[in-house]
Nucleic acid binder design. Structure first.
Length: 639
RNA sequence: GGGCCCGUAGCGCAGCUAGGACAGCGCGGCGGCCUUCUAAGCCGCAGGUCCCGGGUUCGAAUCCCGGCGGGCCCGCCA
């Protein structure tokens, strides 16, 4: 799309003009912010900016003289150190309306001067259990960021890293090899594999604890081991309840084995080497789980451009090995009993790495183990290889990894390793987009223990509650529509609840809060959209034509400025990777629009007033739809 | 023990990067508004030592230092 800024972001263009005009006079970059109610539309903290420059009066008259010649400005006033600027609403309205008419659904598109190729990796859940609430935050953030960055003109590729190489995979695959996946089974495949994984885990742990208990006999540590054993026995009992036949079968198989743990380790080794049988087993299992993932993701409206199998992109192509060999040449890699350890602390002390990558972490950096003593690799080193693959094979300028905050240290090590390998630019362009956990008060989620709230459950509950809400309100829809709307509203509530809080805040999950359909919620924004749609549907006017804007109420002017701010907000949110800003903006616009809706009639207004209001409604609908789209929330025409 | 993050009304959050005009919003509480574009809405009231203590500044929720409280990390798990 080849467009000029004055077309796709008219208000932003005007603001830039104001800023550069003032800069010309006072020789300084100034801040332009929204003014408080009743004091114009924008304000410049002027006195602060020209502090010590004297001749305030002269500068001021020069500023207002020049600004008065900028079209789109109507009034300038100095109040208590602030230069308050009022817009010429007619001009601004014309420009914004034109922009919305021309760009339509794309209004908000605000491309950077130099668009980048951005590869964003997100979700990347281990393919051994269903997706749970923690994954949901990751998935929603990743999808929303992708959409936001695309609106900013970047080309974005969404990648899912299929973690098929870890030891946990082998644990699940080992269990899977004993019981298979009977085609008669009706359960969701990821749920089924997840149960196998938890069962094998519990059985292995219990076995291990029992052995440790025997070894300890009496004295030190017996009490702790006993209580741990009790905990796991309880976990096992719960798991058995879910599918006694499956559980007993797995228990039998494990009992037959002398040393199942070493069998699992062996499976892991064989897989890394590419042993055909091991590969087939693991692949079959992973594919089943991914099939389940995709069922869930389709419900959420989330998709990926690429599924990168860890084994393929890091192991079997020799990339990880190459990385290790090249890393050996630097002096920060040492061997400890056969395993390789990277000493990032020394690397940071000896080199300019800290300055070049802008690391702010204080204090010593604990070393990171890269390989097991049996030669198999650990996750961080494979991730180094994967990062190189992303930059080189996918030709990415920027790589964003949406990964939980608990992985800050290994992610930092990936950057350090890249830098040490000579990928300095890449190290700089690797972004760990970290987010905090979603916690469920009252219990610790643990996939290993089979204890979590799955995304499927959450979706089911969301739809149910929305359905109940529709019933309670006595709304009548066709059966087909009821389902659709319940889904839109239910998922809208969940998505908004998660995306509207800054990613560095822990979310304490609460059903009632996540599924709130009232103010400051997804449905609130959706409802405003529905109201706008409803007005436009009933308007018997062609809104593609140019009109003579006639704004007579403050509310109309506020609404105009708010929608005018949209492209600028998209730019800011995209550049700062702040999806929550989109959610909060959407809420504020919806709130403003609801007030407008209650106070100022549209359809029964006359002449230019009516046309102007209709145009405003169109702008609001466009922007809300656009914002909801970024958040991955459906914008229904009715609800 | 070391590192990172969070701490703003009873509860959930925004504002903090670039210090400035009275600290905002939602839930919950109280009181109003549906013959008029869908009340999942609107309007009003009550509710605050911006965790504490210093410092910088004409000015601090915002910046700096020191505490306190909570979370996470410091694994041959990912």
């Amino acid at each position: 799309m080849d467009l000029k800024k004055e077309v796709y972001d008219p208000l932003g263009y005007l603001k830039e003009e104001v800023k550069s005009t003032i800069k010309e006079v006072i020789g300084k970059e100034i801040e332009l912010r929204r003014a408080p109610k009743g004091l114009g539309d924008y304000a410049v903290p002027l006195v602060r900016a020209i502090k010590g420059q004297g001749e305030l009066e002269k500068l001021l008259s020069e500023v207002s003289d020049k600004l008065s010649r900028v079209s789109g400005i109507s009034r300038i006033e100095l109040v208590r150190g602030f230069l308050n600027i009022s817009l010429n609403y007619r001009e601004v309205a014309k420009a914004v309306f034109k922009s919305v008419d021309e760009l339509g659904e794309r209004y908000g598109y605000n491309p950077v001067a130099e668009p980048k190729r951005i590869l964003i990796e997100f979700l990347s859940a281990n393919p051994i259990h269903p997706l749970h609430i923690g994954h949901l935050r990751n998935a929603l953030l990743g999808e929303a960021l992708s959409k936001l960055l695309r609106l900013r003109g970047h080309s974005v590729e969404k990648h899912f890293y299929v973690n098929d190489a870890g030891l946990q995979i082998s644990i699940a695959a080992y269990g899977f090899s004993k019981v298979g996946f009977p085609s008669s089974l009706k359960v969701k495949p990821d749920e089924y594999i997840g149960l196998i994984y938890s069962c094998v885990n519990a059985l292995l742990t219990i076995r291990e604890l029992k052995r440790r208990l025997e070894y300890l006999r009496e004295g030190e540590g017996v009490a702790e081991v006993t209580s741990e054993l009790d905990e796991w026995t309880a976990i096992a009992a719960k798991l058995r309840e879910r599918d006694p036949v499956l559980f007993d079968k797995l228990a039998d198989e494990l009992n037959k084995e002398d040393d199942p743990k070493s069998k699992i380790a062996e499976l892991n080794r064989r897989f890394e080497k590419g042993d055909l049988e091991a590969v087939r087993l693991v692949r079959d299992m992973c594919k089943l789980v991914i099939k389940g993932f995709n069922l869930t993701l389709r419900e959420l409206g989330i998709s990926f451009d690429s599924w990168d199998w860890e084994s393929e992109v890091t192991l079997w192509n020799g990339l990880t090995e190459e990385v290790i060999n090249r890393l050996r040449r630097c002096k920060y890699l040492r061997s400890e009993g056969g395993s390789l350890v990277l000493d990032g602390d020394s690397a940071i002390r000896d080199t300019t790495i800290k300055e070049e990558l802008g690391l702010t972490r204080k204090g010593p950096l604990p070393p990171l183990t890269l390989t097991r003593s049996d030669g198999t690799t650990l996750y961080p080193i494979r991730d180094v290889a994967y990062s190189i693959w992303k930059f080189e094979r996918c030709k990415a300028d920027i790589v964003i990894n949406v990964i939980g905050v608990e992985q800050t240290l290994p992610q930092l090590y990936v950057k350090i390793a890249l830098w040490l390998l000579g990928y300095k630019e890449e190290a700089r362009n690797l972004i760990h987009y970290s987010y905090e956990a979603v916690k469920v008060p009252g219990y610790r989620m643990s996939a290993r223990k089979g204890r979590f709230i799955s995304v499927d459950e959450l979706i089911r509950e969301a739809k149910n509650r929305a359905l109940m809400e529709i019933e309670r309100r006595g709304l009548s829809y066709t059966t087909e529509n009821v389902g659709k709307i319940a889904k839109a509203v239910g998922l809208g509530a969940i998505k908004y609840a998660i995306l509207s809080v800054a990613p560095n805040k822990v979310i304490n999950f609460d059903w009632d809060r996540a599924l709130d359909f009232n103010r400051n919620s997804g449905p609130f924004v959706q409802y405003a959209y529905v109201r706008a749609s409803s007005i436009l549907r009933k308007a018997d006017v062609d809104l593609t034509i140019d009109i003579e804007p006639h704004l007579q109420e403050d509310l109309e002017r506020e609404l105009l400025i708010e929608v005018g701010e949209w492209p600028g907000l998209v730019a800011k949110a995209a550049d700062e990777l702040r999806v929550d800003m989109i959610a909060n903006y959407a809420y504020n616009l919806a709130k403003l629009f609801n007030t407008f809706y209650e106070r100022l009639p549209v359809l029964s207004a006359k002449g230019d007033v009516k046309l102007t209001r209709l145009k405003l409604v169109k702008c609001v609908k466009t922007v809300l739809g656009n914002a909801l789209n970024i958040l991955g929330i459906e914008a229904p025409e009715r609800m």
